[in-house]
Design a protein around this nucleic acid. Structure first.
Lengths: 187, 187
DNA sequence: TTAAAAACTAAGCAAGTGCTTAGATAAATT
DNA sequence: AATTTATCTAAGCACTTGCTTAGTTTTTAA
């Protein structure tokens, strides 16, 4: 064996994630990552391959951090009411840990909408589809809803969640509350 | 007098706008603008000062192009139904002229949410406030709504419009239709 | 104690960024 | 036709980008 790393990869990725979350992918340079992660460029490339590698690990890290919230949603049994709770929780998370705004996945989704980076786009798409599936499960708990309605409402909720994440970057708490309440009035 | 310009500023701005619309501000370089606008960097800087100047003119150009849609909304008299119509129209516009996606203003709004460029942020904010005011006027046409409800619903609609613009970049026509219908279900 | 292996530092690479400038070209005025 | 004035081309500026590499330091195992 030989010399050992002076940093823990999970720890420096957490810091990288925050930087990406704040500035987006394109507006975060490797020099900025270097400073924020507290390690040299060489180490960044040795550990994660390239800038995109750091970003993909940051996405994983975000998913790990929000895992609990999703698990709570999955195992709950109150249908639409749980989704609403999830909406409120997802707003609470943003702006909590070190002033990050919005949802990291949604921000990325927006930034890469017109991009050709299939690797990152795949990640985001799977995340979104996963969310939709969960919504469908919750909606199914109401026996009065037929399949068509469920699909429509799931689509609606995914887009609403998307709008919410964008809104949470600039709008006030009251505006966001109003938005969530109005959104679920329609179900 | 002396030599005259070989291009019409309004025409080259139209092309610049499309490029910005597709790629956003940061991912559009002056070299790309040069190619798309068909004029030299010198001419770009002579006519518009700098990159931000080109962008601001592009925003103006976008507003001019969508002016008619807004005027139709303002002079109509069917309240909420007009706003819904406006939602459908705003989706039609995107993806029409040369495959642009989403709303140029909303895309800009997303990109500059965390930025410190006050000039551009002001432009966007005024655009959004303007939209909210128009929504309020339309909602007021229903005498059964009290002021509080009107404000809540106006906020909701601005955010919904925002989500819609983001959605129109990736979602299918059916999903978008579902979303609009669901949004207006209870207004 | 020495040799090997991995992680460190820091300088440097080519390419791209927004923007400028020197000099050639063209058109209107005298 | 000559002069003026503004536009053009194209080269170049300093700086930033993602990434690499040469060379040093540290750690473990033989």
């Amino acid at each position: 064996m030989a010399r050992q790393k002076e940093y823990i990869e999970d720890e420096v990725i957490e810091k990288a994630m925050r930087l990406f979350w704040r500035n987006g992918y394109e507006n975060t340079s490797v020099r900025m990552l270097e400073k924020e992660m507290g390690i040299n460029q060489f180490s960044i490339y040795a550990s994660f391959g390239n800038k995109q590698g750091v970003f993909l690990e940051s996405l994983k890290c975000y998913k790990k951090n929000t895992k609990e919230m999703f698990e709570n949603l999955i195992k709950s049994n109150n249908g639409v009411e749980d989704i609403k709770e999830f909406f409120y929780n997802s707003v609470k998370v943003s702006g909590f840990r070190g002033n990050q705004k919005g949802c990291f996945v949604t921000n990325t989704y927006n930034e890469f909408a017109e991009s050709e980076d299939v690797v990152i786009k795949e990640q985001i798409a799977s995340f979104m589809n996963n969310l939709k599936e969960i919504f469908i499960e919750k909606l199914k708990m109401d026996p009065t809803k037929d399949e068509e309605t469920i699909l429509k409402q799931a689509n609606y909720l995914v887009l609403a969640k998307h709008g919410l994440a964008a809104a949470s970057r600039v709008n006030t708490e009251q505006e966001i509350k109003d938005y969530i309440e109005m959104t679920f009035k329609n179900l």
